[in-house]
Design a protein around this nucleic acid. Structure first.
Length: 274
DNA sequence: CTCACCCTGTTA
DNA sequence: TAACAGGGTGAG
């Protein structure tokens, strides 16, 4: 479900709701969602920790703890983090409950169970979560036309596959790769080595532009977020191609096409995008 | 590169 | 009933 804009939304919600709170204990209903360390160790490790901040790296969330340890999580497709009142119903797909000082709880809910948690001790080298392998943040100065050209100038991969590679740029998923390529007027299946310098320049500009645009459109209050249980995406009405297969291109009116690229469903305009 | 797989729910 | 879903990994 979530790509960089949605994960950023969750980060901002959690910052308002749980920073400063003590984790008194944790209940794990489905041990598989704890990737590291073993679930029993995880439960012991998080108990008694105070949350001092929330971070995001690519699509990973980091719950920063006062002693220097970190809880890392990835929501994957359907994961949801919800701050709830005390004793909130444990649903069929609630897998972890963090009991916070004062009675509120942090529920991790995930129907498909693809989401994962890691606990990294203070000073421990995180070789587990994959954060260490991520490429630069798309909103950082490290993302430039030169960087993209150096990474992909000679690659025959479809350009869409390039945008999805987390070890080159962290945080783009299937929705926003389509949105970025639409605005860049580049078809998703174009081999990367066929892109001209001005097209890489255009991508280097549009990647942060589109991601920050959709991040701002996705802003929601903690109350609204809780009311919809994290299921509403405020930015979806602003999507130009994703989810609009068979509908008219918002620029030229031509019917938008669907094509599977790198195993992912891709929507594009056959006339605007070349 | 492509594919199967990890899972369940929703939609055609 | 089958196809499909916003992610990532590992095998071939």
């Amino acid at each position: 479900m979530p790509e960089l804009p949605e994960v950023e939304t969750v980060k901002r919600i959690l910052e308002q709701q749980i920073v400063g709170l003590l984790i008194e204990s944790a209940t794990v209903k489905h041990e598989r969602v704890i990737a590291h360390p073993a679930a029993g160790t995880f439960i012991l490790a998080v108990a008694g920790q105070t949350i001092c901040g929330i971070g995001r790296r690519g699509k990973f969330l980091q719950i920063l703890l006062a002693g220097g340890a970190t809880i890392i999580l990835h929501l994957r497709m359907t994961g949801c983090l919800l701050v709830t009142p005390a004793g909130y119903a444990v649903e069929k797909h609630t897998h972890i409950i963090f009991h916070l000082h004062g009675g509120r709880e942090l529920h991790f809910i995930d129907p498909r169970r693809f989401g994962r948690f890691w606990f990294i001790k203070a000073g421990e080298d995180d070789t587990y979560s994959g954060i260490g392998k991520l490429g630069p943040e798309p909103l950082s100065d490290a993302l430039s036309a030169e960087y993209l050209l150096a990474s992909y100038g000679k690659s025959r991969k479809p350009v869409k596959a390039c945008l999805l590679e987390q070890n080159v740029i962290a945080g783009i998923g299937n929705i926003y790769s389509d949105e970025i390529l639409f605005k860049a007027k580049i078809r998703p299946d174009r081999p990367a080595n066929s892109l001209k310098t001005d097209e890489w320049r255009s991508l280097a500009w549009l990647i942060p532009e589109r991601l920050s645009y959709f991040t701002e459109k996705n802003i929601i209050t903690p109350e609204e977020y809780f009311a919809c249980r994290g299921q509403d995406y405020r930015n979806t009405p602003f999507l130009q191609v994703y989810g609009r297969e068979g509908k008219g291109c918002l620029v030229c009116g031509k019917t938008l096409c669907r094509q599977v690229v790198t195993g992912r469903s891709s929507i594009f305009c056959p006339t605007c995008q070349v």
